[in-house]
Amino acid sequence: MTGPSDRVPAGIDVSRPSAARVYDYFLGGAHNFAVDRMLAEQIAAMTPNIGETMRSNRVFLRRAVRFLADQGIRQFLDIGSGIPTAGNVHEIALDAAPDSTVVYVDIDPVAVEHSRAILAGVDRTGVICADVRDPVRVIAEAEELLDLTRPVAVLLAGVLHFVPDADRPAAAVSALRAAVAPGSYLLVSHATADGQPPEVIEAQRLSARTATEISLRSRNEIAAYFDGFELVDPGLVFIPQWRPDPQDPVDDHPERVGAYAGVGRKD
């Protein structure tokens, strides 16, 4: 039965920019189309720091995964993983501990297909197409790849700011917390307006042109996602301040990246 015009899922409609592709561009990748690059340039024009923010996030992710591996975590659930550019979680985790298992989750079918293609020959990895707002589905599918009776690191890097309040992100995080064993970790990095000039707000409005729009949250709001988790040092800080590499000095204005990061442990 032919119904009304088919609705194309997010990401597949290549006439609209996608968050994953825009992010890839900022990271220096070529996995993007003209519309993505155009939007990226517009955002960059508004907030020149945006590229730095994204890169900073990526670098933090590398530091954090390293840290988690050092704590003995061997299972990683990277939600909102986007397009697998360089410095991916699985590269870092498997490098630190070859018996790690990494599962990527993304809502964008193109990003998921891309990830599957890249990971085709890589053991101990998997890709799930799911929405962070549907934690039940995420957990159900992750269960097939991970052993949820053993600790898992749930990575929500740069993804919760794509979930508006109306979609109840706190409930989703709660559900994820409930599903993982004690000793598991939660990682969150999240855009904020704290310490940001007005053009950041403008960028938020612009971001609505992608499939997802960004919600800037305050430190308190972001800290609330860690209910039920014990934040590890240094707690919830601006991204560059989170356990910086000794060789990567933190500059004087870490707030310029406009995002917080934190890692917490479930007791």
């Binding site: 899922p9 990401g11 597949i12 290549v14 592709r21 070529a30 996995h31 993007n32 189309f33 397009i83 079918p109 193109v110 990003a111 998921v112 297909e113 891309h114 599957r116 293609a117 890249i118």
Partner: peptide, 10 residues
């Protein structure tokens, strides 16, 4: 790669 991924997703 991107093109293939798009097609695949389609």
């Amino acid at each position: 790669e991107l093109g293939k991924a798009v097609l695949s997703a389609h």
